[in-house]
Design a protein around this nucleic acid. Structure first.
Lengths: 365, 365
DNA sequence: CTGAAAGCGCTTACAG
DNA sequence: CTGAAAGCGCTTACAG
């Protein structure tokens, strides 16, 4: 729909004004093939010839082979797309998203590829998803609903890698054993003697609706990450009340914890589905005079290093987030190498429960 | 150098396996031109013909025109690059960077373009800067040194827009009046009665070296943003001691403030060059029993909404950061529309001093 | 080590 | 409203 307009100052048979490889070759007195080889370094060219070509390029102010033309010819654009389901402002307030993106960029950059950042906001037409050049795409986010993006990209036959998403046909996956590790942290609480535990979850629908988790909402949700972590907690505490946050934010953790403590004043521990939510829960507890972990134990998830919070060590599940990003990038790059795709396998990462100073036995009541 | 390898499963005269527009046209019984028009919607095609083409596409599982070919033909890739000088992990811990990126993405997306994210880390070969397709580039960061990126991109004749950077030939600029607004916040302190003020600055060199700002370091630095804000503060307090932080982080603000308070125990106010640094300064003050603003006034810069810090309102300079991002995107897009480039002007934004509850008269001594 | 030729898949004047 | 033709700028077998 909205697509770069071409105005009219562009090709139509006549030159565009820009220097081309052919012109450089002519000036250097060699063929276009040789000039091409001189630039790419991927063929046998005498040093002297190469020098002549590069000199000609300098004289003509030639900036190197046009990536657009190369990309058409080679069938590769050198671009890997990363698709987030939220707008940048929301997605990147989460340090986990940033750390993963960093891992992706690392691996992609080392392979000579660049990263195209696309958002799959529900309110916008597919945009870059439909039109942008890309050799593969990595999808991530809280995964409430990536179907539209998957449909568009699948239609284009772009190899797809999902991070923390529901398994889907024709899509490689990078996941971690969240359910198990959350269950492990729940058992820690259980062994400490806790029996009444509250849960703060990540968003469970696209609208990011806040509020108590009802049976209806649970059934309606398809938010992979949130549901997995919830299942882990409820494996140990089947009846634990849960409050849904509208994002992985400290402020959201505070809001949810306040409501949880209001509605269930008897809980002795809170399991938060992210470290930011956990930090918010701690702040909420402290603002009403509850000490952590004396009066309330708090468990997080992520193992995020949060700037400005050096005072205490959160009990949390540390996930290898940058490594997950790198794995996703490797899968995406791998899908290009093998046309056969057969060798590529989903990657399942293991996280580790780190016991900090925010958990303790419940106060004798 | 490192450039997507072509392996060998690619074009050489024979088909690549993927369906092409020509095949779709043939099946629909129309010419390639008509099929193209049916997809782009930019020409007169009867509804019935269009339907026939789209049906043929569906039957052949054709995902739409190949962006690589379109881009060669039209001379546009539909991609705007955003170049940060740091690695993603570092650049995106700054909420200002994220907010600006959000503004950029907004405007770029609305115009049907996508955003390529490149980093210009000193330790890596130019990477995407040299090879990636792009129609224009936006450069930002703390601007200690963007010269290498500018050189590479300039060589490629890519239109350039700099945000908060030193003016440079052939590059459009988006800046704000930081020097003036920082001076204004300094005058606020002065009018409250402060005479001994400490400054915490953003990084002033590529290595992001911490420590007291000496005359030598000041001379050696070319960090546009940091130097401008420093000049504003010293316009009012010429002799104010300054401590250089290694990033815009709460933890860095704490470190710098501690050293400042150690070395200059008589200061009654701290001017920080970012809100995160200011928050760190407040924490440092409180950890040694100084109350803010009773014992120490603290002024920030940015007007960032920092998650988890709802308790107080920082006195700070609020800059229209997302608007700056949008302006940068508009300039980049504008550079494509006008080949003539003549209409495009630098954009200078105005920030506003917001007086919060972290400033007060100095305690009578 | 170098050159001539073909063609990647599309879009756009142009002519009807 | 539709078709035939040209060509965007490059890279890559292939032949020498």
């Amino acid at each position: 729909m909205t697509r770069p307009a071409n105005d009219d100052a562009t090709p139509s048979g006549t030159a565009t004004g820009r220097t081309t490889l052919a012109q450089v070759a002519k000036r250097a007195g060699v063929s276009a093939s040789t000039a091409s080889l001189a630039f790419s370094g991927s063929g046998p060219v005498s040093d002297e010839t190469r020098e002549r070509v590069l000199a000609a390029a300098r004289e003509l102010d030639y900036g190197g082979p046009d990536p657009r033309a190369r990309s058409l010819r080679t069938g590769r654009s050198g671009i890997i797309a990363v698709v987030m389901e939220e707008r940048i402002r929301d997605g990147f307030t989460d340090p986990m998203a940033i750390a993963m993106l960093d891992g992706i960029a690392d691996e992609i950059g080392a392979a000579g590829y660049s990263m195209l950042l696309l958002t799959d906001s529900p309110d916008r037409e597919a945009g870059g998803l439909r039109d942008a050049p890309m050799d593969a795409a990595i999808l991530f986010g809280c995964s409430t609903d990536l179907d539209p993006a998957v449909a568009v990209l699948g239609q284009r036959h772009v190899p797809l890698v999902g991070v923390e998403t529901t398994p889907r046909d024709g899509m490689r996956l990078v996941n971690s054993d969240d359910r198990d590790t959350v269950a492990e942290s729940a058992r820690l609480l259980s062994e400490l003697g806790h029996t009444r535990v509250g849960i703060i979850t990540l968003p469970l629908d696209r609208a990011r609706t806040r509020g108590p988790l009802t049976a209806d909402r649970l059934t309606a949700s398809d938010a992979y990450t949130g549901l997995e972590r919830l299942a882990g907690a409820r494996a140990v505490f089947p009846d634990a009340p849960a409050m849904v946050a509208s994002g992985s934010l400290i402020d959201e953790g505070m809001l949810a914890a306040r409501r949880l403590l209001d509605q269930h004043p008897d809980i002795t521990a809170i399991m938060a589905q992210s470290d930011l939510l956990a930090i918010g829960a701690i702040q909420a507890a402290e603002e009403r005079g509850l000490s952590v972990p004396g009066d309330l134990s708090v468990v997080g998830f992520d193992g995020a290093r949060v700037d400005g919070l050096t005072t205490r060590t959160l009990t949390t599940v540390v996930q290898p987030i940058a490594e997950k990003g790198r794995a996703a990038a490797r899968l995406a790059l791998g899908a290009l190498a093998d046309a056969s795709d057969g060798e590529l396998r989903d990657e399942l990462f293991t996280s580790i429960l780190r016991v900090g100073d925010t958990t303790a036995p419940p106060r004798a009541s």
